[in-house]
Structure formats: structure tokens, C-alpha cells
Amino acid sequence: MSRARERLTEERKSFRRDKPFGFVAKPEQRADGSTNMMLWKCLVPGKENTAWQGGSYPVTIRFTEDYPAVPPQCSLPPGFLHPNVYPEGNICLSILNPDGWRPSITLKQMLLGIQELLDDPNNGDAAQNEAYELYEYNKTKYRLKVRQQALRYPPPQ
């Protein structure tokens, strides 16, 4: 087993033991029933008392064999409205960038960081123009669009 897969196996065990409320993180199940440890399907709940509350946002995490030396790629669905999410869905978050990445960062920390970023974007490092302009110049309209987006991603039943 590669170092990346060993680490991801440990991450999976750790996440199961100490899972934050409302979060989901599971490796992909292939059609043949095997587990793909290099591709994870996750759900990040919106924080209470924010415009994001009530949504359960699908995050895909792609790991490479270089993990944990190299950060994984984390993404939301294409077209996701957020200043730090590129139009194709890639998330721009300092702890996930090569310059800010540390091999000690855990899956739980990544997901909590994404949850924090939802309501506290870094508009100085915008990845999409529409969300940047709304957040910067019309927060009321931005929050309304976020609420509409939250309705498209209801929590699992």
C-alpha cells in the first residue's frame, strides 16, 4: 500500500471517530464494489446563523499518490456561487494551496476550513467575478443568492 493510501486509511478511521456534526466524508465506491481511496465525496453543512445554514454542500476531494506531501484538489459543483470558488468548482483556500499546505493538515481540518470559507470569503483573492462583485458591492443580493443556493443542496435525510 502506498504512503498516500496508508494515510487516507488512517484519515478515514480518524474521521469516523471524531466526525463534526453534519459532515460526511467517504471514499468513492466503484461500480465493482471496491473503494477508491483517492477520490472522496463529502458534504459540508452551512454554519448556523449564516446565509449558508440549511445547505449541505457537496465537496469532491481528489488525492494524488504524492499526498500528504502535496495538497489534494477540493471542488464544489461547477457554477457554485462563492468568491473563492472558480467557475469549474475548484476551491481557492490558503491551506489547500501548495504555499499554505502542510502535510499535517487533516481531512477534518480541510472540511472545517471549507465550511469557514463559505461564510468568510477572502475577497482579496477572488476566483469568480459575479460572486466577488455581489459580495463586495451588494451583500443583500449576495446573501439572497446564497440562500437560494442553499435550497439546492438540502441535507441528506
Rank of each mutant, 00 (worst) to 15 (best):
L8N: 10
F15E: 01
P27W: 13
P78V: 00
R62I: 06
M38G: 04
S104V: 05
P103W: 04
Y132H: 09
Q73L: 11
K41N: 15
M38K: 08
A126P: 04
D66S: 07
E136L: 02
M37S: 09
H82N: 01
Q53A: 12
L107M: 15
L43V: 08
P71F: 09
Y153W: 09
N36V: 10
A69S: 01
N84P: 15
L151C: 13
Y137Q: 10
K41C: 14
N36W: 05
R147K: 10
G113C: 13
P71T: 13
Y135I: 01
E48C: 02
P77F: 03
C74G: 15
K141H: 07
R62K: 11
K108G: 05
N84D: 06
V146D: 03
N138V: 02
E136T: 03
R17K: 15
V85H: 12
L112M: 08
Y153A: 08
L76N: 11
G100Y: 09
L111R: 15
Y137M: 04
I95G: 11
L81A: 01
L107V: 12
Y57N: 09
A31F: 05
E48S: 06
N90M: 15
K13Q: 08
E116T: 06
V146Q: 04
P45D: 14
E116W: 01
I95H: 11
Q115M: 07
P103C: 02
R147Q: 06
K145P: 06
P68E: 06
I61M: 15
F80H: 08
T64H: 11
V85K: 13
G124K: 12
Q149H: 07
N90R: 15
